[in-house]
């Protein structure tokens, strides 16, 4: 177990949490148990801490919250070892940008606003998703794309027909079309997206159509190619992720275009 102190490597491969001494393994957790505050509740908190691998554990604070709940703060030692060389980091294929950086990239790379047209297509009246991404109100503490000065946003709202969406995309010179689909009865979301991509293929010359991005809680993000769209976003996507992706995709497209 002394390999974590091995002086021959730059950084230790195996580490433990650090309280005030290397290797002490100290952690602090807080939680609530649905028990009235008494000795038994404190014992229960200790039991939970032990089962979490905290041993010895010390209940440093216990407070009744009403007659049926108790809040605990527990300090103690964990014996788990963190193997740093086995940590796997998920790398997304584009960089997350702040609104400021996204705006700067659009200004520099496009030299004009990035035009985004959004809608819910077919019978879907659930604008929750598209509004969370586009409206300035935003989602999860992030402002929507309307907040981005270099994005020109047209939110067409709900129950937009595919031909109408194509016409609007052409009229606005859309760089990107964002479609949100919540209703999934009889796989309506998949049928609608296939209709959408077919219509855009017909309406635009090859390779010139806007980016097509779809989103909704029931989409599988790996199905993008199969559905003929550029990107699928699933549940919990924030406006910043969408904006960052659009900037990434547009800038790459520009590069490709200027390479030719």
């Amino acid at each position: 177990m002394n390999d974590q102190m091995n002086p021959s490597v730059d950084a230790p491969v195996v580490i433990r949490p650090y309280g005030d001494t290397t290797g002490d393994g100290m952690v602090q957790v807080s939680f609530t148990l649905p028990l009235a505050h008494d000795k038994r509740a404190e014992g229960a908190a200790l039991q939970l801490a032990n089962k979490m691998g905290i041993s010895p554990a010390l209940v440093v604070h216990a407070k009744a919250m009403g007659p049926e709940f108790t809040f605990f703060i527990v300090y103690g030692t964990v014996h788990h070892l963190v193997e740093v060389d086995k940590v796997v980091v998920f790398e997304r294929d584009y960089e997350l940008l702040t609104p400021k950086d996204a705006n700067a990239a659009v200004r520099e790379q496009l030299g004009r606003p990035l035009v985004t047209v959004g809608a819910c297509i077919g019978s879907d009246a659930h604008t929750v998703g598209i509004d969370a991404i586009l409206n300035i109100k935003g989602f999860a503490g992030e402002k929507g794309l309307e907040y981005y000065g270099e994005f020109e946003v047209h939110n067409l709202g709900a129950q937009v027909s595919v031909p109408e969406l194509v016409n609007q995309a052409i009229a606005f010179h859309a760089d990107a079309v964002l479609v949100s689909q919540v209703v999934t009865q009889k796989d309506a979301h998949l049928a609608n997206v296939r209709e959408l991509t077919a219509a855009f293929r017909e309406a635009y010359p090859h390779g010139r159509r806007p980016l097509i991005v779809v989103g909704g809680p029931r989409f599988d993000p790996t199905m993008a190619a199969e559905l003929g769209v550029d990107r699928i976003f699933g549940k919990g996507t924030t406006p910043g992720e969408v904006a960052s992706y659009l900037v990434h995709a547009m800038v790459n497209q520009q590069r490709k275009a200027s390479d030719v």
Partner: peptide
Amino acid sequence: EAVVTPWLSDRDL
């Protein structure tokens, strides 16, 4: 705020 919808203990604190 911006982490979770408030827990019972968050409200109490």
